[in-house]
Design a protein around this nucleic acid. Structure first.
Length: 356
DNA sequence: AAACCGTGGAG
DNA sequence: TCTCCAAGGTT
């Protein structure tokens, strides 16, 4: 561990660099806790560049905790459409409702209380507490793991949950107690620039003098992180049922992948015996309650890769019998009226695969 | 502890 | 094309 003088020099150097070079981001215009909350939820596992337009639209549509708590869930999901990890959107609205119901709209300031809110874990609680409320708490995200792993050549595997405690103890000694929020954000900006994962520039880093991995020529050896498993292929039939009222969309279950979003009906091919279009037609009939004549126009296989699954979808098309329109569970939606429902990116790929 | 949960960009 | 990964949380 560094001596006290070195710690103070590090804080001074880091914050001076941050003051002169911090990124100009829409959620940095003030320290409003609601703004911090929305941005932090969106930024979980998501890049800054992707989040910016979503953040702007979301705050415009739902400018306060109360507005979010009162909004229809469908509007919240639509605002999140395309951003991924959709449980974050439902958790965000749930947290807003908790703030109104449990706290009367008055924010708690401690990480212990903040972590009781839906979707807020140790990182996000630390970020909100330090940025919005000046609490001296670390905000340990991927950037903090990488930056401190390199500064101190920490050999622990950051993929292991128990490793967080190692970094927590370390960062609590280094964090600037006078400016904890700026300190945490400065670490993130550093991790997004000079100390990035793939293309770092440690030589010109403002804290190069403190970077043990750079001093010893081992920058890319840190952080130590074990690899994830590769996505498992999952075969489906995706069925585009057409009618004069548009295409049939069904809402996915409220738990699991793409919960509550709207898609073409899917039939898991692994459960079909034998795996034929005729069997898919029977499975669809059981689902929507009416017979549907499927065609296989020989459309290309549509692939979409998630974190741990790769969906391989054979697209089938069908024309619905007229009586089906007010019979099947689901919604008939014209393709020029998709603003009415939230659909995932995988569904947008299916739409692009439809015959013209 | 380990599996689950999306998407887009970069190399 | 393929792999990694980016301001993680929940179960």
């Amino acid at each position: 561990m560094w001596k006290e003088e070195k710690i103070k020099a590090f804080r001074r150097t880091l914050l001076a660099w941050y003051d002169a070079n911090k990124r100009d981001l829409p959620w940095r215009v003030d320290r409003n806790a609601y703004h911090v909350l929305v941005s932090e939820l969106m930024l979980q596992q998501t890049q800054v560049q992707t989040v910016i337009p979503y953040y702007q639209r979301f705050i415009t549509q739902m400018p306060t905790v109360q507005a979010l708590a009162d909004a229809p869930e469908a509007q919240v999901m639509k605002a999140w459409e395309g951003l991924g990890y959709y449980s974050r959107a439902r958790n965000l609205q749930k947290a807003a409702k908790q703030l109104i119901r449990d706290y009367g709209g008055v924010w708690p300031h401690t990480v212990q209380e903040l972590q009781q809110l839906a979707g807020i874990g140790p990182y996000t609680a630390g970020a909100i507490a330090s940025i919005a409320f000046d609490q001296v708490e670390p905000a340990i995200d991927g950037n903090a793991f990488r930056v401190f792993a390199r500064l101190f050549c920490i050999p622990d595997d950051i993929a292991q949950p128990k490793t967080r405690a190692v970094f927590d103890r370390l960062i609590r000694q280094v964090i600037d107690p006078k400016r904890p929020g700026d300190f945490n954000q400065a670490i993130m900006d550093l991790g997004a620039s000079y100390m990035s994962a793939k293309d770092p520039d440690p030589k010109h880093s403002p804290v190069a003098a403190f970077d043990a991995s750079w001093q010893t020529g081992r920058v890319l050896d840190f952080p130590v992180k074990t690899k994830k498993k590769r996505p498992k292929p999952v075969p489906y039939y995706a069925i585009a049922v057409h009618s004069p009222a548009g295409y049939l969309f069904v809402q996915r279950p409220s738990t699991g992948m793409l919960a509550n979003l709207w898609m073409f009906p899917l039939v898991a091919r692994s459960q079909l015996e034998p795996d034929t279009v005729a069997q898919a037609a029977l499975a669809l009939q059981a689902r929507v309650g009416t017979e549907v004549a499927l065609q296989d126009p020989g459309l290309p296989l549509v692939k979409h890769t998630f974190t741990h699954q790769q969906w391989q979808m054979t697209l089938l098309v069908a024309e619905a019998p007229a009586f089906a329109l007010d019979y099947v569970p689901g919604r008939w939606v014209q393709l020029d009226d998709l603003a009415a429902i939230a659909i995932p990116t995988v569904q947008k790929k299916l739409l692009k695969g439809l015959p013209v």
